[in-house]
């Protein structure tokens, strides 16, 4: 470590103090992890690795398995990505490449403002607007015409995996959008001009520079959105239907890891019940940690490539 500010004791004191704060954050994260592990020990001892692949969730019989929740979290997040990525990347392309100057800032600002809305508000909007509209205009017709496909099988209730995925997609669009815009802005000007100079259209220019420069970055943005979607609790709890079951149809209710913890924590009476919920928290913690870590790493390699002018 280099000492920049000489031996001034006040500087030294300042440096040490900030270092304590910085390591304090790391220590807190470690403490959180250690606590999750300690509290889940009874469940880990009782069920072992089978906890992750067991479908039963029966508090009365004290038989717990996390699979329905893991499945619900993954599927609702996947639906969210499926909707959010094309919308967000498309908006980023529009804002950066096509929108007139006077429109850029307001559109980008409003889209990014979506991130500031509290998730319980999203949840309420989901219950009163999104779910009824989806149920009457999309799920009912789809189930009656395409119901023979396992993916769209009825009966239709409203609260469902699809509703959760759609609500999540709106919530993660701002994150994917803003990272995608930054990624698009890193494309070297000379690369765009190369396409134009060969007689490429504006659209061909965008297609080529995205293929040549933006795929890793957009992938990173997607993983960042996934990280948000996996952990989202309140809005999902309000529209997913909260049924601990694994059903192939996206019109059927499901349950997510975050939702089951929020819903059942207060009523978890037995030690094992509580411990099983904490273990679900531990699984979620590890999953989001890995996803965010991967996103950071991908973005870093992309940025260093851009810096080398490739």
């Amino acid at each position: 470590m280099t000492r920049k500010a000489g031996d001034n004791p006040k500087d030294l004191l300042f440096e040490k103090t900030t270092a304590v704060f910085a390591f304090g954050v790391l220590f807190l994260a470690f403490l959180l992890f250690a606590l999750l592990v300690r509290e889940s020990l009874p469940a880990i001892r009782k069920f072992g690795a089978a906890f992750l692949v067991t479908k039963t969730w029966d508090p009365v019989a004290e038989s717990f398995g996390a699979l329905p929740f893991i499945y619900g979290t993954l599927v609702s997040s996947f639906i969210a990505l499926l909707i959010a990525v094309p919308l967000a990347v498309g908006s980023a392309i529009f804002i950066n490449e096509f929108a007139p100057e006077w429109l850029k800032t307001p559109v980008a600002f409003l889209a990014e403002l979506l991130a500031a809305i509290p998730s319980v508000i999203y949840g309420l909007w989901g219950i009163f607007v999104l779910v009824p509209v989806l149920r009457d205009w999309l799920m009912k017709p789809a189930a009656s015409y395409l119901g023979f496909l396992p993916l769209f099988k009825g009966p239709v209730y409203g609260p469902s995996m699809l509703a959760a995925g759609m609500l999540l997609s709106i919530m993660i669009i701002p994150f994917i959008l803003s990272v995608s815009r930054e990624v698009l802005a890193t494309v070297p000007r000379l690369q765009k001009e190369a396409v134009l100079s060969l007689g490429g259209t504006h659209w061909e220019m965008i297609r080529i520079v995205i293929g040549q420069h933006c795929i890793p970055g957009i992938f990173g943005a997607t993983i960042l959105g996934l990280g948000r979607a996996l952990g989202e609790t309140m809005a999902v709890t309000m529209v997913i239907g909260n049924r601990p079951d694994i059903l192939l149809s996206i019109f059927q209710p499901g349950y997510s890891m975050a939702a089951v913890i929020a819903n059942e924590f207060t009523e978890a009476t037995g030690e094992l019940y509580l411990s099983a919920l904490v273990e679900i928290g531990l699984v979620l913690f590890l999953l989001t940690f890995v996803v965010n870590f991967a996103a950071k790493w991908i973005l870093k390699t992309m940025v260093s490539r851009a810096a080398r002018g490739l």
Binding site: L190, Q191, E193, A194, S197, G199, I208, Q212
Partner: peptide
């Protein structure tokens, strides 16, 4: 631009 091509200061292959 298909009739009037261009080569730039910095090589810019894809």
């Amino acid at each position: 631009r298909r009739k009037v091509g261009m080569v730039f200061q910095q090589p810019n292959p894809f």
